[in-house]
């Protein structure tokens, strides 16, 4: 028996909004410790990893490890039926071929349930090594979304250059060039408005705008985002999911032809 109840159901709705453009289908691995999802996008350029800790749920039970393969378009359609303030429960029997989503209004006066067929997905699992990144940039998530959107007007790629002076995002194309520089904030009233740069060595890498823009669909999950970079390895874009976990996007850098 698997059962996970989340009073803040809107978080699960936001997680789906954050992955459904990038992934058509994916497996949710349910274990005693929580729920994890790892999947590559269709073109295998990026990797999404979602981690939801068991302690983050208001009720969590997982008697046996369970892999629930889901069509994310269908899951998203079902979660659209939940109101933002609904309590969401996911439930499945051991070895079941369906999962049930239960939505309760805060007053408990309306209860809906939706059953969805599970899929058998044969997906590659990639091992992500523990890495000390040369640069870790924390910035407001809305600012990062704005930068990716604005620079997408100029070209297909964004160059992210991090040095001790700050971080520079650049794009170049037919209409011209754009550069956005962010310096580390000296003092802020609110922590989520800060730009914080931890740098061991300067790094400059180039990434496809298309993917960065898809990652920013996670913006409603968290006021802050962190970007981790090291020379010649994938960028990690990470958003926390309330107090219950995090979503990480890994994106291969573009390399010289």
């Amino acid at each position: 028996m698997f059962e996970a109840r989340l009073v803040q159901g809107s978080l699960l709705k936001k997680v789906l909004d954050a992955i459904k453009e990038l992934l058509n289908e994916a497996s949710w691995d349910c274990a005693d410790s929580g729920i994890q999802l790892q999947a590559m996008d269709n073109s295998h350029v990026s990797l999404v990893s979602v981690n939801l800790r068991a302690e983050g749920f208001d009720k969590y039970r997982c008697d046996r490890n369970l892999i629930m393969g889901m069509d994310l378009t269908s899951m998203s359609k079902i979660l659209k039926c939940a109101a933002n303030d609904d309590i969401i429960t996911m439930k499945a029997q051991d070895n079941a071929d369906t999962v049930t989503f239960i939505f309760e209004s805060p007053s408990q006066e309306k209860v809906s349930d939706y059953e969805m067929k599970l899929m058998n997905l044969d997906q590659d699992h990639l091992g992500i090594p523990e890495t000390d990144y040369a640069c870790v940039i924390k910035l407001p998530s809305g600012e990062f979304a704005r930068i990716c959107r604005d620079l997408s007007n100029f070209g297909e790629s964004i160059v992210i250059a991090c040095s001790k002076e700050g971080v520079k995002f650049s794009a170049a194309g037919d209409i011209g060039t754009g550069n956005i520089k962010l310096a580390q904030t000296s003092s802020v009233d609110k922590e989520e408005e800060a730009v914080i740069i931890e740098m061991q060595e300067p790094v400059t890498l180039t990434f496809a705008c298309r993917y960065l823009n898809m990652f920013t669909k996670a913006t409603p999950l968290s006021p802050q985002v962190s970007l981790s970079m090291s020379p010649d390895v994938p960028l990690v874009v990470e958003y926390s999911i309330g107090d219950i976990g995090q979503i990480q996007y890994f994106l291969a850098p573009k390399i010289d032809d």
């Binding site: 295998h44 699992h125 990639l126 091992g127 890994f250 291969a252 573009k254 390399i255 010289d256």
Partner: peptide, 14 residues
């Protein structure tokens, strides 16, 4: 020019 490698170039299958 720059080319776009796949993510599996960096992370091995487990």
């Amino acid at each position: 020019g720059k080319m776009q490698p796949t993510i599996s170039k960096f992370f091995a299958s487990v």
